[in-house]
Amino acid sequence: MPDGWNNTSLRELTIHLRPTPRTGFSCKMPRYYLDLYSSDGLTVDEEGQVFESRDRLRREAVRILPDILRDEMLEDDRAAIAVKVRDEAGSHVLEASLVICLKWRA
């Protein structure tokens, strides 16, 4: 083992190695793009974000929906929004959506 390394360092390095179809193993964490579909149309995520796991990606997609919906509801009594997540290859890997409808009673 190289100087300065210990079992913990080796274990942390192993966690970040992931097999990929093209290159074998990669230390790079995947970048995902969260595109927003709302009444304003499509807002494309050009920068993307890196997530350490699919669970963190799922949590982020769900977390942002209420914030966006809150802004949408200021103008109307009905709103539907969706976050569609693309991977680096451009494939859609996850979709999260939220619909809310308010109805007044006489």
Rank of each mutant, 00 (worst) to 15 (best):
E88P: 02
I15V: 12
P19Y: 05
D87H: 05
D76N: 11
W5S: 14
A80F: 14
V50W: 03
R105C: 06
H92G: 04
A79W: 06
L34M: 15
T20N: 11
A79Q: 01
P19K: 09
N7A: 14
P30Q: 06
P66Q: 00
S9V: 03
I68T: 10
R11A: 15
A106P: 12
T43R: 13
V99H: 12
T14G: 12
E72V: 03
T23G: 14
M73L: 15
D35A: 02
E52P: 09
N6Y: 03
T43V: 10
H92F: 11
T8M: 07
K28V: 11
D45C: 08
R58M: 06
D40R: 14
C101M: 06
R54F: 10
G48K: 05
Y33D: 05
V44K: 09
M73A: 02
Y32V: 07
M73G: 05
F51Q: 04
Y37C: 06
D87I: 08
D3S: 11
L42H: 09
E95D: 03
E46P: 00
D67Q: 09
V50E: 14
T14H: 13
Q49H: 06
D35G: 01
P21V: 02
D55P: 00
E52R: 01
A79V: 00
V50L: 02
F25M: 14
A89N: 08
V85N: 01
Y37R: 08
A106S: 12
R63K: 15
D55S: 13
N7T: 07
L36G: 00
L65T: 01
L74W: 09
G90F: 08
S91R: 11
D67H: 10
R54H: 11
F51P: 02
I15C: 05
D71I: 06
S26K: 07
V50H: 05
C101G: 01
E88H: 02
E46R: 12
R86K: 15
E88V: 05
M1P: 09
P19T: 12
A80G: 04
L65H: 10
D67T: 10
P30E: 13
S97V: 00
I100R: 09
W5N: 05
T23A: 12
R54E: 14
D35Q: 10
L69T: 02
S97L: 07
E12F: 04
Y37A: 05
F25P: 03
C101R: 15
T23M: 04
V50A: 07
A89I: 01
W104K: 13
Y37W: 10
S53L: 00
R56P: 00
L34A: 02
M1D: 06
T43K: 13
Y33C: 04
R18T: 15
A82S: 14
R86G: 04
E95K: 11
T23K: 11
T20L: 07
P66T: 04
I81P: 02
L65M: 11
T43A: 05
H92K: 07
F51Y: 15
P19I: 00
R11K: 11
C27V: 11
D67Y: 08
T23Y: 14
M29I: 01
L36I: 13
D35N: 15
I81F: 08
V99M: 08
A61P: 01
D55W: 01
S9I: 06
R70I: 00
G90I: 05
A106R: 12
